[in-house]
Design a protein around this nucleic acid. Sequence first.
DNA 1: CACAACGTTCCATAATGTGGCACGGGCTAG
DNA 2: CTAGCCCGTGCCACATTATGGAACGTTGTG
Lengths: 250, 250
Amino acid sequence: MEMKSVIRSLRVLEAVAQHQPVTVGELTKIFGLPKSTVQRTLVTLAEAGWLRANRKDTTRWEIGARVLAVRPAALQGSSLYAAAREPMVHLRDTLNETIHLSVPDALQCVVVVDRVDCDQAVRTFINIGDTSPLHATATGRAILAHLPRADVEELVARGLERFNDSTPADAAALLAELDRVRADGYAVNLNQYRPDVCAVAAAILDSDGTPLAAVAVSMPASRYQPDRLPKWGRLVADTATEISARRLGA
Amino acid sequence: MEMKSVIRSLRVLEAVAQHQPVTVGELTKIFGLPKSTVQRTLVTLAEAGWLRANRKDTTRWEIGARVLAVRPAALQGSSLYAAAREPMVHLRDTLNETIHLSVPDALQCVVVVDRVDCDQAVRTFINIGDTSPLHATATGRAILAHLPRADVEELVARGLERFNDSTPADAAALLAELDRVRADGYAVNLNQYRPDVCAVAAAILDSDGTPLAAVAVSMPASRYQPDRLPKWGRLVADTATEISARRLGA
DNA sequence: CACAACGTTCCATAATGTGGCACGGGCTAG
DNA sequence: CTAGCCCGTGCCACATTATGGAACGTTGTG
């Protein structure tokens, strides 16, 4: 409602990130704004260090380095990030599936902040920065299971979007699943968000028990084997515990 | 010169990143702006998803997750980032010193984008997002050595800031050093930028030979041993080569 | 209990961003 | 070779938009 120029500038920044390196003309088509407005916005963002002209084609714009100094608190000082790296690589080596690290964003969603790829020919593909709903994914529920009951109810009150038949439909189903997550120490998602994607996740906790993030192993549904779940769940949970411990020890 | 509100909003965003979680009052002290202006800016940034209220203390603001979807092209798809991780950990394990990954920012500076810590009691401390000049650091010169002569001259023309007596003073000194870097395959920095910090770095190249980034091992000057330089240089250069290869293979 | 400090809201003011237009350079088709 | 086109860039009168002082409500403290 306020500061339209700021909001618009940030949208432009996001568009540049998506299409970089991009020209003024391309952006005017995306936004339907006058050329001069887009141009001015780009110059301003560049002046602030958030954008820069491409070195090879100076009429194309790309994201500048300033962006890297601005990171969510969970990643600040790289404590979570650095602590997670080696355990994630180890888990990938053990399971040979893609491993993700995600952080919650204010009860809205979880965001993928890091990824370790496997070398399978068929594998899940999720980008750093991608978001997904808390209630419909293994990562989200691993985190939800460690949040106060009130927060879960707030989330339920906002409505649980369904992505297909297996997405938890109501508060009861979700709460029962969260109980199971707490009992087992890991969360599971079988095609409940993206079709054909299964995942097993566990929460990374702060010293006071607050869930800071979650690690997950995700795979195509075709490679999911129910009988291996207890073992995989334990491995993921152990990885999360190891990361929590390293973060606090550092 | 233009769009003051946008520039100011970005400064506020950066300040929040530095001090998060932070209150309106603290920010007004930092900027000397009226409370209402800061407040409005914060709400606007939050509306755009770049900021959010802290969950535990809703009067404190912190960086939102949206930021993570906006990354420089060099890191896009995380190919560099993911490719670099394991070789960096391996190098750290071999040398037990802090390892950095940095990317150049448009002939202006290099930015640290990743870090693997060692467990030494005394160690170098550089944050992700920190920037340093191209001509005065090992990382910068490792990259400069692989840029066209014209680019180096452009940089020289802009002037070479000196940080202490050992910083390269003129074009001749810098060009001679770059020749040495190309011959040896690694760059060295002995207290030329930050006092008491030594580093050995090597460039990570794209398929066409463009330098995309550089890996560096950095250590307190007290642990630098000249006789080990050839061996360390070779290890760092091998790590850079390995990262280049992994990135292209992926 | 009263004061102080803080986050939040409101609104008249003018400063600020807007976008139509025009310029110049590079590219392509005739 | 040149005419026509498209693109990035710079300008400027207009009015939309952000500004910041002042007032309000709440919290915690002496």
